[in-house]
């Protein structure tokens, strides 16, 4: 069976998470929900597409386009108000280890999204497509418009910048496995 003819519900369960991560990286957690909805609604409208070989890359491309539409509408990037200072861990939570763990991981997630917003465009996109959504660099290059080597470099540089920004977080490993 061709991938282009899978039940659409399968696309949502297989690729919903990667679309969400890319949307969050490109427009911020707040507005990502709208971009996610617009992406899957547009995909469903166009479905099935017999010319699409790689469904995930197709969905991420739509996500990128919907994110760009979104930026055109609001004309700003979701930069945290306090800048990098806002990214510092805030361990004043009390409670059980599990509760502290959950709070810390939510804070960490917030910090990652905020740090991503501070990256230069190309690096942010490369990290979103490759490290968050899991697209191979060949597909990332098509989305960025450039060579695979340039995409790989943008991804590695992006991860390096993230490591610097997130250095206060002990959980952030500096081993880049890409």
């Amino acid at each position: 069976m061709t991938a282009a003819k899978l039940p659409f519900e399968v696309l949502i369960s297989r690729h919903g998470a990667s679309v969400l991560r890319v949307a969050r990286a490109l427009v911020g957690v707040q507005d990502a929900d709208d971009v996610w909805q617009e992406t899957f609604l547009a995909a469903l409208r166009a479905y099935p597409r017999t010319d699409v070989k790689n469904v995930q890359a197709w969905l991420i491309t739509i996500t990128r386009n919907k994110a760009m539409d979104h930026h055109r509408r609001i004309a700003t990037l979701p930069v945290p108000v306090g800048g990098v200072a806002d990214l510092l861990p805030n361990h004043t939570a009390s409670g059980t280890d599990a509760v502290i763990g959950a709070v810390e991981s939510a804070e960490m997630a917030q910090a990652v999204w905020a740090a991503l917003a501070l990256l230069p465009n190309k690096r942010r996109h490369a990290v979103a497509y490759h490290h968050l959504a899991g697209l191979p660099y060949a597909d990332v290059a098509e989305l960025l418009g450039g060579t695979e080597a340039a995409a790989r470099r943008a991804g590695a540089d992006g991860m390096k910048s993230l490591r610097t920004l997130l250095a206060p977080w002990k959980g952030f490993d500096d081993d880049d496995k890409s």
Partner: peptide
């Protein structure tokens, strides 16, 4: 590319929490 979703790169797992 499907397998690359899990696990995420070290340090990025937190974004998957919710």
């Amino acid at each position: 590319s499907m397998h690359a979703l899990q696990p995420l790169n070290a340090g990025l797992e937190a974004v998957a929490a919710d």
